[in-house]
Simulated scan of single mutants.
Amino acid sequence: MQAQATAKFVRVSTRKTRLVAKNVVGLPVEDAVNILKFTPNKGAAVINKVLHSAIANAEQVPGSDVDALVVKQVIVNEGPTWKRFMPRAQGRATRILKRTSHITVILEES
């Protein structure tokens, strides 16, 4: 049995979020929640929210054991980038890239 949840267009960098995602893959859900709760990154809070959504999705399946769930995969893909400009010295402008992510958490019963 698999359960998954996705958060799209999240305003967090893909590279920074992937560093957090590597820490929870392959762990039981309870351990993953504890690690994410005490990781001081914006990406950790977002992954934690998606993980809780995936757990709620798994609870909807009849005959599933939520305590036996394991984080099978955390996919962090790049979303669209917001392009902004910042004024600089001598009338110039530099480009600011505000990156977004699509985050998918897949859970599996062990």
Rank of each mutant, 00 (worst) to 15 (best):
Q2F: 10
V20I: 03
F38A: 04
T17H: 05
K37L: 14
V66C: 05
I75E: 07
A89H: 00
D67H: 11
L19P: 02
I96V: 13
I55W: 04
V24F: 05
V70W: 07
A44P: 00
S13F: 03
K16M: 01
E78H: 08
K98I: 09
G63R: 06
A5G: 00
D65T: 08
G43H: 01
A58G: 01
K49W: 06
F9T: 10
A3F: 01
A93H: 06
T14C: 11
P40R: 02
V61T: 09
R11W: 07
L97F: 14
F9G: 14
L97V: 12
G26K: 05
T14L: 06
R88H: 07
M1W: 10
V12C: 02
P62L: 14
V50M: 06
A56E: 14
E78Y: 02
A44Y: 01
T104P: 00
I106G: 06
S110A: 15
P80T: 12
W82S: 15
K98S: 07
V105Y: 03
I55Y: 06
A89D: 02
R95D: 08
V29E: 02
N57L: 01
M86E: 13
V29W: 04
T17N: 00
A45L: 12
E108C: 11
I55A: 08
E108A: 14
K22D: 14
V74D: 07
R11I: 04
L36C: 04
D31H: 10
E30A: 11
V70K: 14
A32P: 05
H52C: 12
T39I: 06
S101C: 02
R15I: 09
H102Q: 03
